[in-house]
Structures are given as structure tokens and as C-alpha cells.
């Protein structure tokens, strides 16, 4: 079954919100495992795994370094080297935060790796979201891969003009400047030309343009979306109501 982009977004967003509200390590791990399994079923497993690792590995390293070694609130000391103390409480706190962040990151990455951007833009436009937001979203997502190609062309052109990138820092900074400046200038120039073309086609007009793309949104998916969002709202409400009076944040 093909999911409507807003259904995928609602499921991924609700998973992130519910795991944040619940703050339960087993639930967070289960959500991460489910999201990873779904990404492999959709054929994007490797992409999701690589993107998740790129975000979560440095983040987890930082969390375990900060809380694993320096947690003044911890009382159960496992090991100690000078000012660094490994405590059970510090490791538990780091594990809880790492799993909670992972449970928010992995489902959202599954969504962004599997969603069709044109379908998402069409779905947002159909729900009254401004064409300007849709333009910025679509243009940015299209520009990210294109910029790599442009950077390669600039680098080749500069190398043809004698640029040699050596290992030491000043050489790298000079090479960065020689590549970054033409890249930014060309992007700004291109944007200027695009503005004239868009203005000539009535882009700044407040009238709603007709969409040529229709995304199917079956009733069961609409019901599912509302149920998922309602569930997330209930969990957040329960969490906030249980936390505020006693001050147990």
C-alpha cells in the first residue's frame, strides 16, 4: 500500500513525539527497530542506516563523553580517573537520551528518504500551504544534489588554472576560498535570473495556481492520520499533566 506523504509524516512525527513524551528506553529501541525494518522493506535501508549513523554516532559519543565521565549528580561510581568518574546514573542518563533522540531521528529519516518530494509539495499545496513554502522546499531539495555537481565543475576549472590542494592548512583555506567564492557568486547570479522568470509568470500573485498533480488520499489513510495525531496529543497531554503539579520534569 502506498502511503500518502502526510500520512507518513504524521506517523513519523507522532513516533518522535510519543517516544519523547514516554521517555522509555525499551519503547525507544522498539520504535527505532521498527523504523529500520520498514526502511529495509521499502528498499531504502542502507540510505537510512548511513544517514542515521552520520547523525547519531557523534551525538552518542558526545552524550557518553559528557555524562559517562562527568556526572556530578551520580552516586554509584564504577570507575574513577582524576576528575572523571564513571557512574551508573550518568551512563543511564546518556543511554536514555541517546535512545530517545534515536527514536525521533530514525523514523523522521525513514520519512524523508522514502517520501516523493513532488507528491509532498502537491499534498501541501492542496491543503492551502502557500506556494512559496512549496517552492522553497522543492527548490532546496533539488539544489542540494545539484550543488555537488557545480562544485566539482568549479574545482576542475580551478585545477585547470593551476590550483593544487596540498595537505597543510593555509593551502586548504586558499583552495576553499577559490572554490567557495565562485560557487556562491554563481548561485546568487542564477537566483537573480530565476526571480525575473518567476515574476514574469505571476509567481508573486496572491491567486492560487492550479495544480496539475493530484495525490490520492483514501479515507482509511485520513482516518489513520487523525488517530495517530490524536494518540500523540493524548500521550503529550498525559505526560504534561503528570509532570507539572509535582515538578517531576
Amino acid at each position: 500500500m502506498k502511503l500518502h506523504p502526510l500520512t507518513s509524516l504524521a506517523i513519523a512525527g507522532s513516533a518522535a513525539v510519543v517516544t519523547t513524551a514516554a521517555a522509555s528506553v525499551p519503547l525507544s529501541l522498539a520504535v527505532m527497530a521498527t523504523a529500520a525494518a520498514l526502511s529495509f522493506m521499502s528498499g531504502r535501508g542502507a540510505q537510512v542506516l548511513a544517514a542515521s549513523a552520520m547523525i547519531l554516532v557523534p551525538l552518542c559519543l558526545a552524550l557518553f563523553m559528557v555524562h559517562g565521565l562527568f556526572f556530578p549528580e551520580g552516586t554509584t561510581v564504577i570507575a574513577q580517573w582524576g576528575p572523571a568518574r564513571v557512574t551508573i546514573e550518568g551512563l543511564t542518563f546518556a543511554a536514555e537520551r541517546a535512545s530517545r533522540i534515536g527514536a525521533a531521528v530514525v523514523p523522521l529519516l525513514v520519512f524523508s528518504c522514502t517520501v516523493s518530494v513532488p507528491d509532498l509539495v502537491a499534498a501541501l499545496s492542496a491543503r492551502g500551504v502557500s506556494g512559496r513554502v512549496a517552492f522553497v522546499l522543492a527548490a532546496t531539495l533539488a539544489l542540494v544534489p545539484a550543488i555537488g555537481q557545480q562544485q566539482l565543475r568549479i574545482r576542475q576549472a580551478q585545477e585547470a588554472r593551476g590550483l593544487v590542494i596540498r595537505r597543510h592548512l593555509p593551502s586548504r583555506i586558499a583552495a576553499f576560498r577559490l572554490q567557495a567564492l565562485p560557487l556562491v557568486l554563481s548561485l546568487v547570479e542564477e537566483a537573480s535570473g530565476r526571480a525575473q522568470a518567476l515574476e514574469a509568470r505571476g509567481f508573486v500573485s496572491a491567486a492560487r495556481p492550479t495544480s496539475y498533480r493530484q495525490v490520492q488520499d483514501p479515507l482509511p489513510q485520513r482516518i489513520l492520520r487523525w488517530l495517530v495525531l490524536l494518540c500523540a496529543a493524548v500521550v503529550v497531554g498525559l505526560r504534561l499533566s503528570s509532570s507539572l503539579p509535582g515538578g517531576n520534569w
Partner: peptide, 26 residues
């Protein structure tokens, strides 16, 4: 803030926003 500001921007600024976002991201 996005809802308040975005409709008021001229096209010359709007087309520059994706460029800015890509610079931020990269």
C-alpha cells in the same frame, strides 16, 4: 514567523532562500 514573513517577500529574495538554505546545510 514564517507564516507572517514569507508572503511579504519579493521574488528576488524568495529565490535566494533555497541558495541560503543549501549553504547552511552544506
Amino acid at each position: 514567523l514564517i507564516m507572517a514573513v514569507l508572503p511579504t517577500l519579493p521574488a528576488s529574495t524568495l529565490v535566494l532562500i533555497p541558495v541560503a538554505l543549501v549553504l547552511n546545510i552544506v
